[in-house]
Write a protein that binds this DNA or RNA. Sequence first.
DNA 1: GCGATAGTTCGTAAAATATCGAACTATGGA
DNA 2: TCCATAGTTCGATATTTTACGAACTATCGC
Lengths: 97, 97
Amino acid sequence: MRAYKHPSIDDVTMEEIFHALSDPVRLGIVRQLHREGDQTCSALDGGRPKSTVSHHFRVLRDAGLVHTRVEGVTHMNALRRKELDERFPGLMTAVLG
Amino acid sequence: MRAYKHPSIDDVTMEEIFHALSDPVRLGIVRQLHREGDQTCSALDGGRPKSTVSHHFRVLRDAGLVHTRVEGVTHMNALRRKELDERFPGLMTAVLG
DNA sequence: GCGATAGTTCGTAAAATATCGAACTATGGA
DNA sequence: TCCATAGTTCGATATTTTACGAACTATCGC
């Protein structure tokens, strides 16, 4: 994997965001990213198998919630907070507050 | 059916709300209730079979988003907007805005 | 080049969800 | 009481989602 595909923020839909956040694992990841800032996948796996975690990150990326960048041998994840705030004002504040 | 069971607002979780709203039919129902005010189930069925619509209303009620009251032969649905606003400030505004 | 580490992808099995027809229930009105 | 209307419940099927092991890929350091 050389680079990840992330949807343009304009293509992100609320429906997909809700779907992504309807899973407790993913909601937990998003909240932890908010509280603690950017983190690698393994810092967020909660002891789950890698393939499971990888799946959840894919859903979060596809939904437009998380941006993943490759940093050497690790992959660093960030909430797309600023873009999301512009696209859906107040949503992430309500979700994370 | 004599009366519906609705969860106490304190038992409502964001996770369940997200699950309920992750379906396009249900998100549509919630938005229409917001735009047009209380409505019967059949006014919100969008041509779908009754059993399908009934299922979606059950999910919306169980998630704490919608309150249904019996009015004669029809069942009237209302967004639990005020309660939701107190429980999750800003959430419904973001969802509906 | 050779490990070691971090994650992805694939295949599959299990669980949850959506959809719909058919039968049922409750209410109001003729 | 009988009928029509509004909606629920049941049962079956099809689709989606989750979870996880195994095999694979990419990068770093030696």
